[in-house]
Design a protein around this nucleic acid. Structure first.
Lengths: 203, 203
DNA sequence: TCCTTTTCGACTGTCGGTCGGTTTTTATTG
DNA sequence: CAATAAAAACCGACCGACAGTCGAAAAGGA
């Protein structure tokens, strides 16, 4: 019962690295089992299919980020600081920049989409709790917070996902839209600029 | 020189029907050539790859919708009517409902994504021109219209794309967000409700 | 006739997934 | 502490489906 768990984790780790570096579609099961030094049968003893393995790899990735985001929520910070922190916590680390890059390659659409969906389900409740604090403090003024948070995330993931460059106008309009969606005073969400600019600068 | 063009169109038509009914990923080149009664080599005489064929099929689909949308723009209608008309014109026809259905199946992510991108590039300028009329009439009050229109389209395509059911709250918030993004008075965009409800009712 | 366009279909390589059987571990007894 | 039965882990040859290739053969026009 112990050995199986370890092996499975090992396989997930190997696959994770390969999916990130070469892309999900471009990584064959044969390559995974060769890297792991196991036979085809063993692979399918642990995973029902390649796609089901992808789900588990994604789950593993998101576990870490969820933990970080919740830690930020619990910390003693202002509402804007929390929002910045939560969003930053789900951004790929410096050394994991390749993940992000890989995800935007067309051959990884499926993986990208799955991660996106699960990341949203994970992060919407957390960000919503921060936003609710914002409403209590009078920073924001709106109802249906989770729905609004989700919309903001949809917009940002589409606008700032790297594969189409965004103009300053897009950033301005996005900040304006964010403030209005949440019922905040103009300028309140200006801190978004720092979040959105950062990845672009590296390039 | 004539025969080739005709054959190519015929193949695109056949593929279009099959992609729509069975999905792009689930339609094999072998099935297409069997339906067309041609050999493998002939297929690859006309198309460099299956994916390149998909591009052409999509192009064919969008030509029709672009024409309809521009006709609405030229028509003598009020700004809200034009917006409704343009959006309606890119919505799948009654008898083509299966397209929409097919597009949302996970196996058609690639096709869905490609259509989405190209549809946006096509429809954003057209809708923007309608919105500019709206600004001139005092109905809307904002700058950077194309960017704002694009954001609204991003939101609607994500929220109302069928695979996740939307609550009344989502519709309310979307309408509210739309009005605020365009700087319209509350209630101005209430007509969206009809557009968004319709597909759901049929089901 | 000669040249171009169009058509053919056998073939290739890769891939995800299956299957029957073998080895290793673990739990259970005498 | 063996002996053994049952369960867990592992193996790799094999399969069918698939996108794409290629050299050669018709068809058509000048």
């Amino acid at each position: 019962m112990k050995k199986g768990e370890r092996r499975k984790r090992e396989l997930l780790q190997i696959a994770y690295r390969m999916f990130v570096s070469k892309g999900y579609e471009n990584t064959s099961v044969d390559e995974i089992i060769e890297a792991a030094g196991i036979a085809k049968g063993t692979y399918y003893y642990y995973f029902q299919s390649k796609e089901q393995m992808l789900e588990e790899v994604i789950g593993m990735m998101l576990e870490v980020e969820a933990e970080k985001a919740e830690a930020v929520l619990r910390a003693d910070l202002s509402v804007p600081e929390k929002i910045v922190g939560i969003i930053a916590s789900i951004q790929p680390e410096q050394q994991e920049r390749t993940i992000d890059e890989a995800l935007h390659r067309p051959e990884n659409l499926l993986m990208h989409d799955k991660i996106r969906g699960r990341l949203f389900d994970l992060i919407v409740p957390i960000l919503s709790r921060a936003a609710e604090d914002g409403v209590r403090e009078g920073l924001f003024d709106c109802d249906h917070i989770p729905e609004r948070i989700r919309m903001i995330l949809i917009l940002s993931s589409d606008l700032f996902d790297g594969h189409n460059p965004y103009t300053p106008a897009v950033i301005d309009v996005f900040i304006d839209a964010t403030e209005k969606i949440l019922g905040a005073r103009p300028g309140t969400m200006g801190f978004i600029r720092a979040l959105v600019r950062a990845p672009q600068d590296v390039q």
